[in-house]
Design a protein around this nucleic acid. Structure first.
Length: 427
RNA sequence: GGAGAGGUGGGUGAGUGGCUGAAACCACAUGUUUGCUAAACAUGCGUGCGAGAAAUCGUACCGGGGGUUCGAAUCCCCCUCUCUCCGCCA
């Protein structure tokens, strides 16, 4: 969430940022936050004062008892009851103000970066890079991947329907191998780039969901295990970033770099439709995620590095791609600046989003209480970033479509060592 | 799942109602001394909030929440986590 200090110091920038996102009454919203914070401070002061006199009295009473001056002690006791009532009511008031303030702040999204283009929807995203035109000329062989996977028997949606439901496919035979191979390849590349591998839990508690900003904003998008009040992760970002919740890092521990593979679970409530055939949108999919925790002054440099890493991955697979700078309207709730990567899937003739790389600045860190103590002993919130490197099913879709060759499907060279085969053939 | 024991500062660990925000030790930081390293000595060393230019002061925090009391790390209740034994189990 936003820091009150930021709202106060950079009020105009915050207002403009929220307006860019299309938020109505941004100014009023932010002013409310400031007013509540003022009230909070005032209340805190009053409460502290009452508690101070109350504590002082209690000590005196203790002394009087020890000195055997019971009457005086009893007399002093009567004074405390009034103070107690007062502190209780002040405490409750303070509590409710803090609650309102938090609720307000939790529902205000991050302020977009100055370079974020205005706009309402994905159509307004800015294409900042288009790969060299290596779109394959498919000629006679131009089947969408949902036909190919059936033909080569490598993904089974029917089976998934039977066992789980729509959006939970089975990968089979060379398809299953391909998934496993890509995961290993992506993880190896991340390791090469200095990311320390972790294998996090895929169920997380409410605090973690709140820490990275999925809760309360995206409550309905996560699967919820009610019996234990746990959520299935929508991305490894959540458990990995939450490793550092309530942590004060020393300057020399930075940067923190982690990579992890997990399945990701998304309810995709309301976004289901005919346009999401095949592997284009799933309730469960595999993804390798990279996460960094860095000093504020370095976060944009790091964002560029992460973008470069993802770009290199996609290039190595030989897929046509483009990089988008998300417009304000399409920008995630917690993000300041996000670059999306899309690969071109040649048979369906569609761009598919396969990665999203974001800088959250202090937005998550503020929720997480993730701070850095520098060498002078000063504390400040860290910056957090993450990116997909990469999400598997759409990469798979693009590979299948772009590399199809009639009776077989070629596989990008870099994956050969991970698979034990160089092409997919009918079994 | 059953029974028991426990969660105290970065770590070990003392502390069963007031003088304990918390002993001691370790770790860490700075300084002194020693030719360097090591050692010794000295000092410092938690977090949030509020006030202050700052020094500092006030307040809260001993797993979380509530209660008893003039006063709670210490007593009571609920939750949670960890450990041990038993059961079950990949």
């Amino acid at each position: 969430m936003l820091q009150v200090a930021t709202i106060e110091k950079e009020f105009d920038r915050c207002v403009k940022g929220l307006q860019k996102r299309g938020i109505e009454g941004a100014e009023i919203l932010l002013k409310d936050a400031l007013t509540l914070d003022e009230q909070r401070k005032k209340m805190q002061g009053e409460l502290d004062e009452v508690l101070h006199t109350s504590n002082k009295l209690a000590k005196e009473i203790g002394l009087l008892f020890q000195q055997g001056k019971k009457e005086q002690a009893e007399k002093a006791k009567t004074q405390t009851s009034e103070l107690k009532r007062k502190s209780k009511s002040l405490g409750e008031e303070l509590n409710s103000i803090e609650l309102s303030l938090n609720k307000l702040l939790y529902n205000i999204p991050n302020i977009p970066h100055e370079t974020v283009p205005p706009g309402k929807s994905e159509e307004d995203n800015e294409v900042i890079k288009l790969s060299d035109d290596n779109k394959p000329n498919l000629g006679a062989h131009k089947k969408p991947h949902w036909e190919l996977i059936e033909e080569f028997d490598i993904v089974d949606f029917e089976l998934g329907n039977k066992v789980s439901g729509a959006g939970f496919p089975f990968y089979k035979k060379q398809g299953a191998r391909l998934v496993r191979g890509m995961i290993n390849y992506f993880l190896d590349k991340a390791a090469e780039a200095g990311y320390e591998e972790v294998q996090p839990p895929v169920l997380i508690n409410e605090s973690s969901g709140t820490g990275t900003g999925q809760l309360p904003d995206k409550e309905g998008q996560m699967y919820h295990v009610e019996a234990n009040d746990l959520y299935l992760i929508p991305t490894a970002e959540v458990p990995i970033t939450n490793m550092y919740r309530d942590v004060i890092l020393k300057e020399d521990q930075l940067p923190i770099k982690h990579a992890g593979h997990t399945p990701c679970f998304r309810r995709e409530a309301g976004s289901w439709g005919a346009h999401v055939r095949g592997l284009n949108r799933l309730h469960q999919f595999d993804k390798v995620e990279i996460v960094q925790v860095v000093e504020p002054s370095k976060s944009y440099e790091v964002l560029d590095q992460m973008v470069a890493h993802v770009e290199e991955l996609i290039q190595s697979l030989g897929l046509p791609y483009r990089i988008l700078r998300l417009c304000a309207g399409d920008l995630g709730f917690t993000s300041v600046l996000t670059y999306d990567f899309e690969v071109y899937s040649a048979a369906q003739e569609k761009w598919l989003e396969v990665s999203s790389v974001s800088n959250f600045e202090t937005f998550q860190a503020n929720r997480l209480k993730l701070r850095i103590k520098n060498n002078d002993g000063k504390k400040e919130l860290a910056h957090t970033l993450n990116g997909s490197a990469l999400a598997l099913p759409r990469i798979m879709a693009a590979i299948l479509e772009n590399y199809q060759a009639g009776d077989h499907i070629n596989i990008p060279d870099v994956l050969h060592p991970y698979l034990g085969f160089k092409e997919i053939r009918k079994s």
